[in-house]
Amino acid sequence: MYRAENVTVTASGRRLVDGASITVRPGRVTVLVGPNGAGKSTLLKAMSGEHRLATGRVTLDGVSIHDMRPLELARRRAVLPQAAEVAFPFTAAEVITAGLMTGEGHDRARILRLLARVDLPGFADRRYDSLSGGERQRVQLARILAQLDAGKPDVPGYLFLDEPTASLDLAHQLTVLNIARAHADAGGGVLAVLHDLNLAAMVADEIVVLAGGRVRAAGPVAEVLTEPVLADAFGIRLRIGVASPGPFILPQNVQAAQ
């Protein structure tokens, strides 16, 4: 279990995240939603160990991640960056191996399989800097999957995805979310920041609504994606429909709350 306990993150005197507690369970996809500036990415970065905490703690199976060495933590959690530039002319396959800090996981067949899984077959020897934004995003996804594969396969690994669908077309948004789903189904944990509430409703087991740095609601999709919660968090009134398998939100039903 990967938990944030009463986490506060400050930057130049402002509380970006204010006393947030959330739990990412193995076997579940947990999705962070909220308006711009709600602190979603900041909370994800605090949980990944990248941001320092002003107060609170982040634990992995009860151990504070700040007591773990970076390499130890990297065996258990991998983070998909939002927009990653690579400094030198690496190929797609080299980008994947560059993220592997041990001798594990370098074999070519495995890397080709991972590239095929993110729908980039035949891209292994293409230059990373010649790829489109969406293709780079998927190479990075393959890289973090390789990182977790090379880590400790016997205990659950956690995928942290910060807006993984941002530069992707519809088909590849589904590719990425299906990979997240499959990771959870195989026993791992997923924490994702998503903007699109419908994608969130589709992939999430649990949704955490963040606004003003605070957790406004958390729980299963059907309990959290309700009109009062969203009106409170986003400041707009939405009409939410329900159709199998879950709730959906139509933008044409949006009205200003005030």
Binding site: K45, S48, G49, E50, R69, P70, L71, E72, L73, A74, R75, R77, A78, V79, P81, A84, E85, V86, A87, F88, F90, V95, T97, A98, G99, L100, M101, R143, I144, Q147
Partner: peptide
């Protein structure tokens, strides 16, 4: 050398991959 390869991915990315940047 390995850490420098990871650093090419970015400082935060290198830390996430397990480098004491």
């Amino acid at each position: 050398a390995r850490g420098l390869d990871a650093l090419a991915l970015g400082e935060a990315e290198a830390f996430h991959a397990g480098v004491s940047v």
